[in-house]
Design a protein around this nucleic acid. Sequence first.
DNA 1: CGGTCCGTTGAGTTTAATCAAGAAACGTGG
DNA 2: CCACGTTTCTTGATTAAACTCAACGGACCG
Lengths: 240, 240
Amino acid sequence: MVNRFVEKLRGFAPLTNQDVMLLEEVTKVVRPVSAGHDLIREGDRPDPVFVILEGWACRYKLLPEGGRQIVAFLMPGDTCDIHVSVLAEMDHNIQVLTDARVSTIGRADMDRLLHERPQISRALWSAQLVDEGTLRAWIVSMGRRDSAGRVAHLMCELYIRARNIGLIADGELLLPLTQIVLADAVGLTPVHVNRVLRKLRPTGGIIIRRGSIVISDPVVLARVAGFDENYLHRRLRNAA
Amino acid sequence: MVNRFVEKLRGFAPLTNQDVMLLEEVTKVVRPVSAGHDLIREGDRPDPVFVILEGWACRYKLLPEGGRQIVAFLMPGDTCDIHVSVLAEMDHNIQVLTDARVSTIGRADMDRLLHERPQISRALWSAQLVDEGTLRAWIVSMGRRDSAGRVAHLMCELYIRARNIGLIADGELLLPLTQIVLADAVGLTPVHVNRVLRKLRPTGGIIIRRGSIVISDPVVLARVAGFDENYLHRRLRNAA
DNA sequence: CGGTCCGTTGAGTTTAATCAAGAAACGTGG
DNA sequence: CCACGTTTCTTGATTAAACTCAACGGACCG
């Protein structure tokens, strides 16, 4: 089975054979985690770096008043904080959304990769910067887009990320997200997300299922989202 | 005059004398930039790393429909993307909000610092992680707090950051932000920000001026924001 | 002294939240 | 295989929050 972590890094920098071997070695031990479980909790002293090999996860924060806000989705190949070791404790939680397969990289191993393997280091840096760009894009969405735009924009982001790691089949992507999870991500109520989805459905961009949503036409969603069409197309072409 | 960049890094990791000398050497050339100017524009090919030595700046994105969303504020000591060099082009703009003094670190110098000076590298990493935490906090604010909460929470963040770098005088902090800029940061309209500010004023937490706002009682704001009181107090105590 | 940018205020509208209730799918244990 | 509880989705009616539109005053600048 392909190691999606290796594949992702390969997309950011040309890895040597030895780089690949090291990465595979270091993520050799895989642990299954079942849907709904927290990988990391706020306040935990972070030590090993988690790598998601299969399945989806999300970072989230709980508010004192009881609400929840998701701040990122993690897909196969994504890591939970490369350098957490420099911080004293986690400031958010990470929850697995589907049954998943997860590996961990010990702090010593990670340090070695970062210091002795320039291409790996470079690839991890790039991944980090892309993640940061995504965080900024979320802020823009929440600050300046209406509900339909937010939902559609998030879907475009997820579609492109999935495409970049080869998760798209028949041009479609199944998002394993309930409307409740979606609501926690876009900062709306589940009730309103439901209304948005049914308004979006007639466009043909999505198919609504129980517990998941299928993105069937991302170009339509891009239009709704005010997603930079050129950007989407460029990325789509590259990945094709 | 103190080099706020050095001071900031010193707060994250114990620097050697040579580290400090190198950092001062590398930020020796200072350029004044007057309020309102863009340091970096979206699409620019990024090369040198900018370091803000004096003054405030913000990162922002413009939307096709004409709106603007600020995604971060930069204070003295902050840098504009340590590793932009690995990306092809900037995905956002950086604008100076006050008259400022800015230095640049060339790509080669930055690489050398990162690879040959472990403490500097570590400090820069920490700074990066803290920035990421701030981005996540913004997402939480925009997603789950009402207008007053958002404004107050942002003010708490800025107060703490300013306090950490020794910018607080008499327990007060002058935010050099117009209500328009504030609105672009919290994702509201200037009109509504104005109403929020006037609702906040009687609490004694802030003083409203033309072109700026003074935070006079952050504890009051923390209460309005639902800002984690322990967190604030802890930070306040540490810095005291 | 005129122009521009900010801030202020009010009235009316839009958007999303809230409250409430019920239907459909799913999981579990008997 | 069925009964039951739970979760998710759905829909309607009402309320609350924030936006829009519009107008005006004050401060600052050239």
